[in-house]
């Protein structure tokens, strides 16, 4: 057993646990968007950052990937942590304003509006990559991936058209934290013939 403190509270962790595992085991809330038990942690959304302090030194790490270590002093709600979360949430509000999940989480941090320009009011996808990882790691279909890079990145199947790799299992839709995959699903699997027939096509 490893001994560490989270927000001043002494807690124990088993070797191999992450800081997020440890906190959740002890009912300490840490917000996440790109994390899901069913797939490998990714460390991308950075909402789960926590502060590690050692004397005067301090740094932020993503708790979903950082391993619990003996003697760590962890702070989950310090000013530095909240500053990172607030900015990410405010930027998400402008990037994917249609997402209910993002709006709710932002409100918890007192972020009700965004100073940034909204490009697409319909956008829900936060690019957490859960759909891609679930399709690869859980289903094994590898039907979708991230396409492009940086600010232009998006989620899709090759050439952004329906492909044969999709088995239409819907795992990506289930795992999506914002509901964005619902709208993209047909572009990945193609519109099934039944639906086409109903629509009289």
């Amino acid at each position: 057993m490893l001994n560490l403190t989270i927000d001043g509270k002494k807690v124990q962790a088993e070797a191999g646990w992450t800081l997020l595992d440890t906190a959740r085991q002890h009912h300490i809330e840490i917000p996440t968007l790109c994390y899901h038990e069913a797939v490998e942690p990714f460390g991308a959304c950075r909402l789960c950052v926590v502060e590690l302090r050692q004397g005067d030194n301090s740094r932020l790490v993503a708790s979903c990937v950082y391993p619990a270590e003996e003697g760590l002093e962890v702070h989950t709600m310090s000013e530095k942590v909240k500053n990172v979360r607030r900015w990410i949430l405010e930027m998400l509000l402008s990037e994917c304003p249609a997402s209910e999940a993002v709006r709710e989480m932002a409100a918890e941090y007192g972020v009700d509006s965004t100073r940034f320009e909204v490009r697409n009011p319909e956008e829900e996808c936060i690019l957490c990559g859960l759909c891609v990882r679930a399709c690869a790691q859980v289903v094994g279909a590898n039907a979708i991936s991230t396409v492009g890079r940086g600010a232009q990145k998006e989620i899709g199947s090759p050439y952004l058209i329906p492909g044969e790799a999709c088995v239409a299992c819907g795992t990506c839709v289930t795992v999506c934290p914002t509901g964005a995959m619902r709208a993209r699903f047909d572009r990945v699997r193609g519109v099934p013939e039944v639906v086409m027939a109903k629509a009289g096509k």
């Binding site: 930027m91 936060i126 690019l127 890079r149 600010a151 232009q152």
Partner: peptide, 16 residues
């Protein structure tokens, strides 16, 4: 901004 890989949110959203 052009060279960010776009994986983590602070860089992808923040640099632009």
């Amino acid at each position: 901004e052009e060279e960010s890989c776009g994986k983590c949110f602070p860089c992808r959203l923040g640099v632009p």
